[in-house]
Amino acid sequence: MHWVFDTEMNTVNSKVKLKPHIIVSGLTMAYGDFIIQRDLNFTINHNDIFIIMGGSGCGKSTLLRHLIGLKSPAKGQIYYGDINFWDAGPAERSRIMRKCGILYQKGALWSSMTLAENVALPLEEYTDLPNPAIKEIVSLKLALVGLAGYEEFYPSEISGGMQKRAGLARAMALDPEILFFDEPSAGLDPVSARRLDDLILELRDSLGTTVVVVTHELASIFAIGSNSVFLDAETRTMIAQGDPHMLLAETVDPKVKEFLTRGKTVSAETFSGWKE
């Protein structure tokens, strides 16, 4: 697939390199009175693979729900390009979301429909393609995620990992400009997780997709991340942002360091505690 796009994408790449795609400014997220995170400010550029990371319960998935229009912010703005996402009406939001694909944590395939029908639904809704063409695209997308031949299966008839991949095929159905992943490697074996990482990189490079990934999987973070934000549950705000490799090398914040080194600082202390 990727030789088709190679030449034109390279030129596009250099042009759009640092164009902001999503801007989050002063975002505060809350459930009722309970504040999850406050004062989030970051920019996701075109062609980024942007990682939202942090410990469990820090609000990563909640942040994602704000970005994809499922939960409105308590305060602050989210801009898609120049458009204020939450001030624009529902019609405008839905128009923006049409250019986004989302892979949910458990795949979220519609259980009453076969894999082919799942992938075909967005195409039927938003394109005028004739049925044979849709069928061809569906087969191609399923083949891309390694599920060729599974068109007529129902989600309950395949394994969790396969459901997740089928979910990705559905997210890619409309060739989205932005792909959101919620914990992509959760529940996948190491090899499948690695393949998914490769697929994410491939999508970014060949189609110029902007990718936003919510994860705490260190291997994935370092393998694919080009920019990131670190959410902290304790102080309820972001405490670091930037390329994960740079963060690892440069950060002085003990929490970020602990996270990115898989808690080495903690275990050292623990061991010294044991010696006493």
Partner: peptide, 13 residues
């Protein structure tokens, strides 16, 4: 529970 309804909403359906 399976986020299927979220998936519909974000699909604009």
């Amino acid at each position: 529970v399976n986020e299927e309804i979220d998936a519909l909403k974000t699909m604009g359906i």
